[in-house]
Structures are given as structure tokens and as C-alpha cells.
């Protein structure tokens, strides 16, 4: 017989696990309010809000944040277009080498970032492409495409192919069918995939290290800042912002894809 109540030791273990995962994040948050700026001292000797003002007035923070947002936005956009097209082809057609291509598309997210980073760097060098904003975007797009693809391909498989035929049968051309039938059916999957892609790109460090020139994305800026003993809590303020910026889209994606398990367009 199964008991509905978990034993006490299991509850304690689960609680301890959750604490281990999340207390460090809370500590980071706490340091954003400390009065001590040379070293991390626990407990904080005093609390202050001055670091928010300091952070606000630091142009390097703004530059890094702006670069990160622009990179994430453009990589996500590229990923949305390419990932959707690729997913549509995989879900609709059978062709020679289909499984291989499917594997190749997913590979970048399974590969260690350092491999992706090194290989892209040497490829850019070989092709004489100077490191710039666009090389960062390309690097990020490699794994963003995968996230969008995975979301879209699952939705395409659950959308009945006869919906497209029904639309054409009723007089809609390819464009109208895409706009009125395909897009509404895959929209939430694209939104979820896009949000995940954005979040992944926003806090990416390893690939960025290899594909960036002189620019600093926000995570790279934070790494640099940690080794400099000056206005340390500024890093913590930025860390808080990053956590929130990353967390909200993921939460949104979760709610959007919830409850879409039924097969769209299946009539029986």
C-alpha cells in the first residue's frame, strides 16, 4: 500500500536540496545591499541602497547590458526563422539523410560550449572575419536555433497535416494558410522557444569569450568585474537584474506551453 504522506526524512532531504540550490542566489542578492565594497563579508556590516545609484551611473554597465540585449534579440530572431523552417521540413517531409540532419541541428546544444567556441573562433580566423557584434550573434544563434527547433518540431508533429490541406481547399494560398492556420497553431511554441533562446543567449559566457572581440556582454563584464576590488556590490546589483531578466521569460514559457498536450486538429 502506498502512503499519501512522504516520510519526514524525505521532506528534510528535499528541503535541504532546495536550500542548497537557492540560498547562494539569495546571498548574492544580499550583497547588493552591503556597505562593504572591498571584500565579501558575512554578515554585511550595514545595509544601503547606494549601489543601485552607482550602478545606474556606470556607463560600462549600460554598454554591456545593451550589447547583451541586442545580441540576444537578434540571435533569437535568426533562431525563430531558421528553427521554424527547419522544424517544418523535418515534420512534413521524408527525405534521404533526414535523421542525420536532425542530429546535426541538435548537436550544438549537446556539444560543450568550449568546443563550439574554439571551432567558431578558428573558422572566423580562417575566413578572415574580424570579431565583432555579428560574430557573437552567429555564435549564439548556433544554440538558439536548437531551442526554437525543438519546440517548433514537437508542435508541428502534433498539428494535423490535413489542416494545411483544408485551408488550401477552402481557397487560401500558401501565405494565407501560413498566416491564418500555421502561425496561430505554432505561435505559443515559437514564443516559448524564443523566450528560452533569449534567456540562453543573455547569460552565455563560453562561446561569447571565443567569438567576441573587444566588446563585453553582460556576463563577460561581470567576470572581469569580480577580479577588480572596486565597487564590488555593483556586480551583485547587476546579477540581480540578470536573474530577473532570465527568470521571467522562462516562467512565461512554462505557462504558455502548459495545457497544450492535445493533438491539434485531430477530429476523432
Amino acid at each position: 500500500m502506498r502512503s499519501d504522506r512522504a516520510p519526514l526524512w524525505l521532506k528534510l532531504a528535499a528541503g535541504a536540496g532546495l536550500l542548497f540550490l537557492h540560498v547562494p542566489i539569495l546571498i548574492i542578492f544580499a550583497y547588493a545591499f552591503t556597505t562593504e565594497d572591498k571584500s565579501y563579508q558575512w554578515p554585511p556590516p550595514g545595509l544601503t541602497l547606494q549601489w543601485f545609484a552607482v550602478t545606474w551611473n556606470r556607463p560600462d554597465v549600460w554598454e554591456a547590458l545593451s550589447l547583451s540585449l541586442r545580441v540576444a534579440a537578434v540571435s533569437t530572431l535568426i533562431a525563430l526563422v531558421l528553427g521554424t523552417l527547419c522544424a517544418a521540413a523535418m515534420a512534413r517531409f521524408r527525405f534521404f539523410g533526414r535523421e542525420v540532419i536532425s542530429l546535426l541541428v541538435i548537436l550544438p546544444i549537446a556539444l560543450p560550449g568550449i568546443i563550439t567556441g574554439i571551432s567558431l573562433r578558428s573558422a572566423f580566423n580562417l575566413a578572415d572575419i574580424p570579431f565583432s557584434y555579428w560574430t557573437i550573434v552567429l555564435g549564439h544563434a548556433t544554440f538558439c536555433v536548437v531551442v526554437v527547433y525543438n519546440n517548433a518540431v514537437a508542435r508541428f508533429r502534433r498539428t494535423s497535416a490535413s489542416l494545411v490541406e483544408a485551408s488550401m481547399d477552402l481557397g487560401a494560398n500558401g501565405f494565407q494558410t501560413f498566416r491564418h492556420v500555421i502561425l496561430p497553431n505554432i505561435a505559443t511554441a515559437l514564443l516559448a522557444g524564443g523566450m528560452l533562446a533569449f534567456a540562453l543567449s543573455f547569460d552565455e559566457v563560453i562561446v561569447t569569450t571565443f567569438t567576441a572581440g573587444q566588446q563585453q556582454t553582460l556576463p563577460i563584464w561581470m567576470l572581469e568585474e569580480l577580479v577588480r576590488p572596486r565597487q564590488r556590490p555593483v556586480t551583485n546589483v547587476v546579477a540581480m537584474v540578470v536573474v530577473l531578466v532570465t527568470f521571467l521569460p522562462i516562467l512565461g514559457a512554462y505557462y504558455l506551453t502548459r495545457g497544450t498536450e492535445t493533438v491539434a486538429g485531430q477530429g476523432k
Binding site: 490541406e165 483544408a166 481547399d169 492556420v181 491539434a264 486538429g265 477530429g267 476523432k268
Partner: peptide, 12 residues
């Protein structure tokens, strides 16, 4: 015009 085997009604 066609009446499809699985009806193919637009779920949205």
C-alpha cells in the same frame, strides 16, 4: 471543396 476524413477543423 473537400470534407476530410479526420474533418480537419481548425482547433484555434
Amino acid at each position: 471543396n473537400t470534407v476530410f476524413q479526420d474533418y480537419a477543423l481548425f482547433p484555434h
